[in-house]
Computed example of a mutant assay.
Amino acid sequence: MTPLSKEDIEKKLLRFPDWEYYDNAIHAEFEFDNFKDCFSAMSRIAFECEALNHHPDWTNVYNVLTISLSTHSANGVTEKDFKLAEAIEFIVEVQE
């Protein structure tokens, strides 16, 4: 898998207003009403990650989920990251 150029990443991010590109990855932070809702979203995201065989760097503190996506084998952001970001956005949107 080939990493995307910075220009391509920034263009694709226009569809993902909650995400930013820095440190060779795309990043987002999502806040939920409580820990249970956050953990529920994480569980649903985990199933998508397994289906796509692509796993995020993420942290959870109470009701906040922070996610970073990059394709480590490509040493950068690829189409695979945007496919997972799209799935994450769908899950988080449904959760709200």
Results as ranks from 00 to 15, higher is better:
35 F>H: 11
59 T>C: 10
82 F>D: 01
15 R>Q: 14
53 N>A: 08
85 A>C: 01
40 S>N: 10
89 E>D: 15
11 K>N: 05
94 V>R: 09
84 L>C: 08
70 S>W: 10
33 D>C: 02
58 W>V: 11
49 C>N: 00
58 W>D: 10
94 V>Y: 15
77 V>D: 04
6 K>C: 10
92 V>M: 12
10 E>G: 05
32 F>Y: 11
25 A>V: 01
37 D>I: 06
66 T>V: 09
29 E>K: 14
29 E>P: 09
36 K>L: 08
46 A>S: 09
82 F>P: 08
17 P>V: 05
52 L>F: 12
82 F>C: 05
46 A>V: 05
9 I>T: 04
18 D>F: 00
61 V>C: 08
81 D>P: 13
27 H>L: 11
18 D>P: 02
51 A>T: 11
48 E>K: 14
79 E>C: 02
81 D>Q: 11
33 D>Y: 11
26 I>R: 03
87 A>Y: 08
9 I>A: 06
50 E>V: 11
82 F>A: 01
56 P>Y: 12
55 H>M: 05
60 N>S: 07
61 V>E: 13
25 A>Q: 09
54 H>M: 13
79 E>T: 02
54 H>L: 11
24 N>Y: 04
45 I>M: 07
41 A>V: 10
35 F>R: 01
83 K>P: 04
29 E>F: 01
77 V>Y: 03
18 D>K: 03
78 T>S: 14
57 D>V: 00
66 T>P: 04
52 L>Q: 06
95 Q>E: 15
3 P>N: 12
36 K>G: 03
82 F>W: 03
30 F>Y: 15
93 E>K: 10
50 E>I: 08
89 E>W: 06
50 E>L: 09
48 E>T: 07
64 V>L: 05
72 H>S: 14
72 H>T: 11
35 F>M: 04
82 F>S: 07
30 F>Q: 09
69 L>H: 10
72 H>I: 09
60 N>K: 13
73 S>Y: 02
36 K>A: 13
85 A>F: 01
77 V>H: 01
5 S>Q: 11
54 H>R: 03
94 V>D: 15
16 F>L: 03
6 K>E: 15
90 F>S: 15
60 N>V: 06
79 E>F: 00
5 S>R: 10
15 R>T: 07
78 T>L: 12
32 F>D: 13
20 E>R: 03
1 M>L: 12
53 N>R: 09
49 C>P: 05
75 N>C: 06
16 F>A: 04
81 D>F: 13
56 P>L: 07
35 F>A: 06
45 I>Q: 00
6 K>G: 07
41 A>D: 07
75 N>P: 03
45 I>F: 13
71 T>M: 14
79 E>M: 02
65 L>F: 07
